[in-house]
Design a protein around this nucleic acid. Structure first.
Length: 827
DNA sequence: GCAAGGTC
């Protein structure tokens, strides 16, 4: 029996398809798919099935000095036990083993991990390695016709990286966490990839903070020819003889303004016309895909998660790739043919097929890992197989493929320079004369700017001269996709990990919002690293590691050479850290507090801080606790973000509640608390009004939620629900049946007529019992849970499947992220 | 409870 091992199940199935001509059987053992035909079995791993870690005696952070980790042994242990077990069973019976993991460095290491598992149970079986960069009939067949050997040096290069990353990451993470006393879930992490990435964000923030705006002036005017008016901008030649538009002295700007304003005509002194070829974009690698998806509103995380789903379902190729050159095996025409006749994607494909010859663009990176991301030709049905979001991303991938085989576009640029005395104005026109690839790829801006045909010497009417005072702007924060591109440029992370690294920075409390902003903690961590362990926040560490890995792969250095040297460098860092533990810890602790500070406590003058209760909900508490017990409530939906805006009345920072699509600005918690409490009386309580004189009032609870309740609470628990947000207006109209005033909720643009609160509640109950929530169709979700999920903005199955399990777990008491994942799987 | 790299 021959055993073939691939990196993932998907690859195993497709290779089995190709080698068996589609005749293979499949079975499931230990939760692992095994494909079998004519004396062969093929099984897929799930990436790495073993990982590196320290022996268990190092696992207690308080009992081990971080520096001890540097020379600690590093062990390999199974991380996917079921897969390892299955592999052992299959390997015992194998007469030959073929390793067919991905064709890149990490694939070689994963292959070696499989090799060692096989060898452990079968000493003599021949083990060979096949390499192919796309799973096509041609490539796979020829790879299996000419098998090679595993490259142990290349695998060792990967192992060196694993060891260095673990030792540096763990030792420094523990050092910072211990020095600041952050030992629970809120440890302070450091790593070869995350820390330089964080430094990018922090450095930009420092530039923004240090930025000193400068005032300048720009001048504009309207020109008219034959009743067509177009805009012109004043420019001059600076000392380097470059064209400049910004005037830095007000007097100079005013002088030009007066010259222009006094004149009612300008003379054309130069007309420059040129055509520019706008070449189609290159095939998608992961980074460029994330960037394009970002431009249509998808976060890096969401874009990758959708791409993974589309890949697993067979609609697009593997989404984690560095390659920007299609394989020779890809038949472009055949792939276009698959879309002919499709209601929305067909027309473009048909027009592309009319070309005499179909040639694709190529990017700079031609790698062996996987093909560029492109559609497979299997087309999902919108709304059936895929959601609207998934369809939008799928269409992007299809249209990007179209663009790569489309014609270039042609622009015509027309620059007209006019003159008034010595002052010059310019007008830049552009027109798309050949739309080319833009016809099939409508994601780029193709707006035109019309400037009419004019001749040199012609006089044009000059009107509406404007002098605009402006300020230079600080550099812009990195957006997520720009960060991922910069990481790629600097060699930080890989195609598979860059977007995860950003998520990690969010989870660790280092960045907030989008575009990401660093927290005070992040600034302090980068500060500390710059002062004592500069290497770990510099992209140099990765560059050096890459060079060392190349040396190992080529046999010029050994794994021990490289890891020993790295350990020595870390020893030196720890020697310099030893004396500064206190100082670093103080700075980190202070920054952690700064991230939570709202402003002075009105009762004692200490700081009011955002805190988390034992149940996980957020509230505002005083740093003077237990001497000062002042607290303020925060809404129960979302995670609080402290804004820069301060409330005029109390000098406290305003708070925004981050909850995905439900995100809203809560404002100053003290103002909110003052407005809260018992609102207007609406009328008699239907339960106890006659007997005890209870009345109904609008109430706001500590949690921030609101209701109509009885003034005799807790003796009378009668209550009716109210929406969480919006101002509630009590009108003069009364409900005839219940004799209560009609209510109107003002939130967003449209006021919402809620009506009599009793009628409203009855209607709500009627609706609920009629439809029920489709969430209840899932085992394990009852009416109580439906109610709790609704509080987090999850009202139906669609919301649930799209929700981020970790966020839900944070927002909903008593619900873990794993439980949410189980529901999602069922949904 | 550490990292980064695979994959789901």
């Amino acid at each position: 029996m021959e055993l073939i091992i691939t990196e993932k199940d998907n690859a195993a199935r497709r290779i089995a398809d190709i080698l068996s001509g589609g005749t293979h059987d499949s079975s499931r053992e230990n939760g692992v798919n095994v494909y079998e035909w004519g004396g062969k079995r093929c099984v897929g791993l799930s990436g790495h099935v073993v990982g590196v870690d320290f022996p268990s005696e190092y696992s207690d952070w308080r009992d081990v000095e971080p520096v001890e980790l540097i020379d600690a042994e590093v062990e390999k242990t199974a991380t996917k036990e079921n897969i390892v077990a299955t592999l052992r069973i299959l390997a015992r019976k194998a007469e030959r083993v073929t390793i067919a993991t991905d064709y890149d460095r990490e694939g070689e290491l994963i292959g070696k991990e499989a090799y060692e598992i096989v060898r452990d149970v079968n000493e003599d079986v021949p083990i060979r390695r096949v390499r192919f960069s796309s799973i096509t009939e041609n490539e796979v067949q020829s790879a299996f016709d000419e098998p090679e050997d595993l490259d142990f040096d290349l695998a060792a290069a990967g192992e060196a990286r694993q060891i260095i990353d673990l030792v540096w990451g763990a030792a420094l993470t523990r050092f910072l966490s211990l020095s600041a006393g952050q030992l629970g879930n809120d440890f302070i992490s450091v790593g070869r990839v995350q820390s330089p990435t964080l430094k990018l964000i922090v450095d930009r923030e420092r530039e923004i903070q240090a930025f000193d705006p400068e005032t300048y002036w720009e001048l504009f005017a309207d020109l008219t020819k034959d009743e067509t008016t177009f805009e012109a901008q004043y420019f001059y030649r600076d000392e380097d003889d470059n064209e400049a538009e910004r005037v830095w002295e007000e007097a100079a700007a005013t002088e030009v303004y007066e010259t222009l304003d006094d004149s009612d005509a300008a003379t054309v002194v130069d007309v420059n016309r040129r055509t520019r070829t706008d070449t189609p974009p290159t095939p998608f690698n992961t980074t460029q895909f994330i960037r394009a998806a970002g431009a249509i509103g998808y976060s890096a995380k969401r874009a990758m998660s959708i791409a993974e789903d589309l890949y697993t379902a067979g609609y697009i190729t593997y989404p984690r790739t560095d390659n920007t050159v299609y394989s020779d095996d890809l038949d472009l025409e055949e792939l276009l043919d698959d879309f002919v006749g499709h209601p929305t994607l067909g027309e473009s494909a048909e027009s592309l097929l009319e070309a005499d010859e179909i040639v694709a663009t190529e990017g700079d990176e031609e790698t062996t890992d996987h093909p560029p991301i492109h559609p497979t030709g299997e087309i999902p049905s919108r709304g059936g197989d895929v959601s609207d979001d998934e369809w939008e991303v799928y269409e992007l991938v299809v249209r990007r493929f179209y663009a790569t085989v489309a014609e270039a576009a042609v622009w015509e640029h027309l620059k007209v320079v006019t003159e008034v005395d010595d002052s010059r104005l310019k007008s830049n026109g552009k027109r798309l004369v050949e739309a080319g690839y833009h016809d099939v790829y409508p994601y780029f801006n193709t707006s035109e700017n019309y400037v009419p045909d004019v001749d040199e010497g012609e006089e044009l009417a000059l009107t509406d001269v404007e002098l605009e005072e402006k300020e230079t702007q600080p550099p812009r924060r990195y957006g997520q996709s720009r960060l991922i591109e910069t990481m790629e440029d600097q060699g930080l992370g890989t195609k598979s990990t860059r977007h995860n690294t950003l998520e990690k920075l969010y989870d660790r409390g280092y960045i907030e919002s989008d575009p990401p902003r660093p927290t005070k903690l992040a600034m302090a961590v980068v500060d500390a690293a710059e002062n004592y362990a500069d290497r770990v926040v510099s992209e140099e560490m990765t560059a050096q590691l890459e060079a060392d890995m190349d040396a190992i792969a080529s046999g010029e250095a050994s794994l021990e050479d490289v890891t020993d040297e790295s350990r020595e460098m870390l020893e030196e860092i720890f020697a310099s850290l030893a004396d500064s533990r206190e100082e670093i810890g103080d700075h980190l602790r202070k920054s952690l507090k700064d991230d939570k500070r709202l402003g002075p406590c009105p009762e004692c003058g200490e700081d009011l801080l955002v805190r988390r209760s034992r149940h996980g909900s957020y509230f505002v508490g005083c740093d003077g606790y237990p001497d000062c017990e002042n607290t303020l409530p925060l809404p129960s939906t979302g995670k609080p973000l402290i804004l820069d805006d301060e409330c005029d009345k109390h000098g406290l920072n305003e708070v925004k509640m981050l909850a995905g699509r439900q995100t809203f600005v809560h404002g100053c918690p003290l103002c909110k608390a003052e407005d809260a409490g018992e609102g207007p009386i609406l009328g008699d309580c239907p339960d106890c009004g006659d007997e005890h004189g209870g009345e109904l009032a609008v109430k706001t609870l500590q949690s921030g939620s609101r209701l109509v309740g009885c003034t005799r609470y807790p003796d009378c628990e009668y209550s009716l629900p109210l929406p969480r947000r919006g101002d509630i207006e009590v009108t003069d109209e009364h409900c005839e049946e219940h004799d209560l005033p009609e209510l109107v909720v003002h939130s967003g643009d449209e006021p919402w007529e809620l009506g009599c609160p009793i009628c409203n509640y009855q209607e709500f109950q009627a609706r609920e019992s009629e439809s029920g929530s489709d969430l209840e169709s899932i085992d394990g979700i009852g009416a109580k849970t439906v109610e709790k999920l609704a509080g987090a903005g999850i009202e139906n199955l669609e919301d649930l499947t799209e929700a981020d399990p970790d966020t839900v777990a944070e927002d909903v008491d008593g619900v873990s992220a794993d439980r949410v994942r189980t529901w999602q799987a069922k949904a």
